[in-house]
Simulated scan of single mutants.
Amino acid sequence: MPVSPYVANLRAHVGHDLLLLPGVSGVVRDDAGRVLLARRTDNGQWSVPAGAIDPGEQPADAVVREVYEETGVHVAVEGVGGVATHRVEYPNGDVCEYLNVWFRCRPVGGAPRADGDETLAAGWFAPGELPELTEWSRLRIATTLAPDAPAWHAAPGAGHPALLDPTAL
Protein backbone atom coordinates (compact mmCIF):
# COMPACT_ATOMS: atom_id res chain seq x y z
CA MET A 1 0.00 0.00 0.00
CA PRO A 2 1.75 3.22 -1.11
CA VAL A 3 0.08 5.57 1.40
CA SER A 4 -1.32 4.34 4.70
CA PRO A 5 -4.75 5.56 5.84
CA TYR A 6 -2.97 7.38 8.69
CA VAL A 7 -0.76 9.39 6.31
CA ALA A 8 -3.66 9.96 3.90
CA ASN A 9 -5.64 11.47 6.78
CA LEU A 10 -2.73 13.75 7.71
CA ARG A 11 -2.33 14.78 4.06
CA ALA A 12 -6.02 15.77 3.97
CA HIS A 13 -5.15 18.40 6.59
CA VAL A 14 -1.69 19.58 5.52
CA GLY A 15 -1.70 18.98 1.77
CA HIS A 16 1.81 18.53 0.37
CA ASP A 17 3.48 20.33 3.33
CA LEU A 18 6.23 18.72 5.38
CA LEU A 19 5.35 15.75 7.58
CA LEU A 20 7.77 14.21 10.10
CA LEU A 21 7.21 10.45 9.99
CA PRO A 22 8.86 7.36 11.48
CA GLY A 23 10.32 4.98 8.90
CA VAL A 24 12.35 1.78 8.61
CA SER A 25 14.68 0.17 6.08
CA GLY A 26 15.86 -3.41 5.84
CA VAL A 27 19.35 -4.24 4.61
CA VAL A 28 18.98 -7.93 3.90
CA ARG A 29 22.01 -10.10 3.14
CA ASP A 30 21.88 -13.78 2.26
CA ASP A 31 24.53 -16.39 3.18
CA ALA A 32 26.49 -15.50 0.01
CA GLY A 33 26.65 -11.82 1.06
CA ARG A 34 24.26 -10.66 -1.64
CA VAL A 35 22.01 -7.67 -0.88
CA LEU A 36 18.25 -7.69 -1.47
CA LEU A 37 17.10 -4.65 -3.46
CA ALA A 38 13.74 -3.49 -4.79
CA ARG A 39 13.11 -1.27 -7.82
CA ARG A 40 10.61 1.40 -6.80
CA THR A 41 7.51 2.19 -8.86
CA ASP A 42 7.47 5.90 -7.94
CA ASN A 43 10.89 6.76 -9.38
CA GLY A 44 12.27 3.58 -10.98
CA GLN A 45 15.33 3.56 -8.69
CA TRP A 46 16.78 0.51 -6.96
CA SER A 47 16.78 0.79 -3.16
CA VAL A 48 16.82 -1.22 0.02
CA PRO A 49 13.24 -2.06 1.06
CA ALA A 50 11.80 0.69 3.24
CA GLY A 51 8.59 2.23 4.45
CA ALA A 52 6.68 4.01 7.17
CA ILE A 53 5.92 2.64 10.60
CA ASP A 54 2.18 2.35 11.25
CA PRO A 55 0.69 3.76 14.48
CA GLY A 56 1.13 1.20 17.27
CA GLU A 57 3.71 -0.80 15.31
CA GLN A 58 7.23 -1.43 16.59
CA PRO A 59 10.10 -0.62 14.18
CA ALA A 60 11.32 -4.24 14.00
CA ASP A 61 7.81 -5.43 13.15
CA ALA A 62 7.51 -2.70 10.52
CA VAL A 63 10.74 -3.69 8.76
CA VAL A 64 9.70 -7.36 8.66
CA ARG A 65 6.35 -6.30 7.16
CA GLU A 66 7.82 -3.80 4.68
CA VAL A 67 10.50 -6.17 3.35
CA TYR A 68 7.92 -8.90 2.79
CA GLU A 69 5.34 -6.57 1.21
CA GLU A 70 7.85 -5.06 -1.21
CA THR A 71 9.97 -8.12 -2.06
CA GLY A 72 8.23 -11.35 -1.01
CA VAL A 73 11.18 -12.25 1.24
CA HIS A 74 10.59 -13.11 4.90
CA VAL A 75 13.35 -11.80 7.18
CA ALA A 76 14.68 -12.04 10.71
CA VAL A 77 16.05 -8.87 12.27
CA GLU A 78 19.64 -9.21 13.49
CA GLY A 79 20.28 -5.69 14.77
CA VAL A 80 20.06 -1.97 14.23
CA GLY A 81 22.29 -0.70 11.44
CA GLY A 82 21.72 2.99 12.00
CA VAL A 83 19.38 5.90 12.51
CA ALA A 84 19.08 9.24 10.75
CA THR A 85 16.58 11.76 9.49
CA HIS A 86 16.17 11.94 5.75
CA ARG A 87 14.07 14.39 3.75
CA VAL A 88 12.07 13.07 0.80
CA GLU A 89 10.20 15.01 -1.87
CA TYR A 90 7.89 12.66 -3.77
CA PRO A 91 7.01 13.10 -7.46
CA ASN A 92 3.45 14.11 -6.48
CA GLY A 93 4.79 17.04 -4.40
CA ASP A 94 4.43 15.49 -0.94
CA VAL A 95 7.33 16.36 1.38
CA CYS A 96 8.34 14.15 4.32
CA GLU A 97 11.20 14.04 6.77
CA TYR A 98 11.63 10.45 7.93
CA LEU A 99 13.28 9.44 11.15
CA ASN A 100 14.60 6.23 9.62
CA VAL A 101 15.87 3.25 11.58
CA TRP A 102 17.59 0.71 9.38
CA PHE A 103 18.14 -2.89 10.36
CA ARG A 104 20.54 -5.69 9.46
CA CYS A 105 18.34 -8.59 8.37
CA ARG A 106 18.76 -12.10 7.04
CA PRO A 107 16.32 -13.98 4.83
CA VAL A 108 14.37 -16.85 6.37
CA GLY A 109 11.95 -17.67 3.55
CA GLY A 110 10.19 -16.53 0.42
CA ALA A 111 11.68 -15.49 -2.90
CA PRO A 112 12.21 -12.05 -4.47
CA ARG A 113 9.28 -10.78 -6.51
CA ALA A 114 7.80 -7.40 -7.34
CA ASP A 115 4.57 -6.51 -5.58
CA GLY A 116 3.30 -4.53 -8.60
CA ASP A 117 2.26 -1.66 -6.34
CA GLU A 118 5.39 -0.26 -4.71
CA THR A 119 8.01 -2.32 -6.56
CA LEU A 120 8.69 -3.08 -10.21
CA ALA A 121 11.32 -5.75 -9.46
CA ALA A 122 13.20 -7.31 -6.58
CA GLY A 123 16.37 -9.35 -6.51
CA TRP A 124 19.67 -10.32 -4.95
CA PHE A 125 22.84 -8.46 -5.93
CA ALA A 126 26.46 -9.31 -5.18
CA PRO A 127 28.28 -6.40 -3.47
CA GLY A 128 30.46 -5.81 -6.54
CA GLU A 129 27.48 -5.93 -8.91
CA LEU A 130 25.05 -3.48 -7.31
CA PRO A 131 22.95 -1.43 -9.72
CA GLU A 132 23.06 2.37 -9.64
CA LEU A 133 22.03 3.43 -6.14
CA THR A 134 21.54 6.73 -4.36
CA GLU A 135 24.01 7.75 -1.65
CA TRP A 136 21.19 7.17 0.85
CA SER A 137 20.93 3.49 -0.14
CA ARG A 138 24.72 3.15 -0.22
CA LEU A 139 24.98 4.57 3.32
CA ARG A 140 22.51 2.04 4.71
CA ILE A 141 24.25 -0.85 2.93
CA ALA A 142 27.77 0.26 3.96
CA THR A 143 26.87 0.77 7.62
CA THR A 144 25.48 -2.75 7.93
CA LEU A 145 28.40 -4.59 6.31
CA ALA A 146 30.05 -5.69 9.57
CA PRO A 147 27.59 -7.75 11.62
CA ASP A 148 29.04 -6.51 14.92
CA ALA A 149 29.40 -2.82 13.97
CA PRO A 150 27.70 -0.32 16.26
CA ALA A 151 24.59 1.44 14.96
CA TRP A 152 25.52 4.36 12.69
CA HIS A 153 24.36 7.92 13.30
CA ALA A 154 25.52 11.33 12.16
CA ALA A 155 27.75 12.93 14.77
CA PRO A 156 26.24 15.92 16.59
CA GLY A 157 26.61 18.99 14.43
CA ALA A 158 27.67 16.91 11.43
CA GLY A 159 25.77 15.63 8.47
CA HIS A 160 26.44 13.20 5.69
CA PRO A 161 26.05 13.80 1.95
CA ALA A 162 23.61 10.88 1.74
CA LEU A 163 21.18 12.70 4.04
CA LEU A 164 20.98 15.85 1.94
CA ASP A 165 19.37 14.69 -1.34
CA PRO A 166 15.57 14.99 -1.02
CA THR A 167 15.00 13.06 -4.25
CA ALA A 168 16.78 9.95 -2.95
CA LEU A 169 14.37 7.43 -1.51
Rank of each mutant, 00 (worst) to 15 (best):
F125R: 12
G51S: 09
L37A: 01
L21H: 05
A149W: 13
V67K: 03
E57Q: 12
G110P: 06
G44R: 09
D94G: 07
V48T: 15
W152P: 02
G33V: 08
R34M: 13
L18P: 11
A162L: 06
A154R: 07
T71W: 10
A155M: 06
A50C: 13
Y98M: 03
D42F: 08
G23S: 10
A62M: 13
G33A: 01
G51M: 08
A149L: 01
V75G: 03
P55K: 06
V64H: 03
E135K: 12
N43L: 08
V67G: 05
F125E: 03
L37P: 12
G82T: 08
V95H: 03
P107D: 10
V80G: 05
R39S: 08
A142N: 07
G128D: 11
P150I: 01
V48L: 15
V101Q: 11
A155P: 02
R34S: 14
D30S: 05
N92I: 00
V24C: 01
D61T: 15
L120M: 15
V28M: 13
T134Q: 04
A38W: 12
T85Q: 02
G82A: 00
R106H: 13
R40P: 03
V77S: 04
H86P: 03
D94E: 06
E89Y: 06
P156V: 00
W124L: 10
I53K: 03
L145A: 12
E129T: 14
A146S: 15
R138V: 07
G79Q: 11
G81V: 04
W136A: 04
A151L: 08
R140H: 14
T143Y: 07
D94R: 11
T134M: 01
A76K: 04
R34I: 15
R65C: 11
E66P: 10
H16M: 06
G72Q: 06
P131H: 13
T134A: 00
C105T: 06
V95S: 01
H160G: 05
E129C: 03
P59Y: 15
T119M: 07
L36N: 09
P91F: 00
E57V: 09
R104Y: 01
V75P: 05
A114M: 09
L18S: 11
D94F: 11
P112S: 13
E89G: 10
N92K: 02
V77G: 07
L36K: 08
A162V: 07
A155Y: 01
V73L: 10
P59M: 11
D117M: 13
D31N: 13
L133C: 08
E129P: 00
T134K: 02
E57I: 08
V75T: 08
V77M: 05
F125G: 06
W46V: 11
V83Y: 15
H16C: 12
N43D: 13
G33Q: 08
G51I: 02
N100A: 02
E78N: 14
V27N: 00
E129D: 09
P91V: 04
L120Y: 06
G116T: 01
R106L: 03
L139Q: 15
E97A: 05
P91N: 03
A84T: 09
L36A: 06
A111H: 12
V24I: 09
E132R: 10
A62W: 15
V77F: 05
R138H: 02
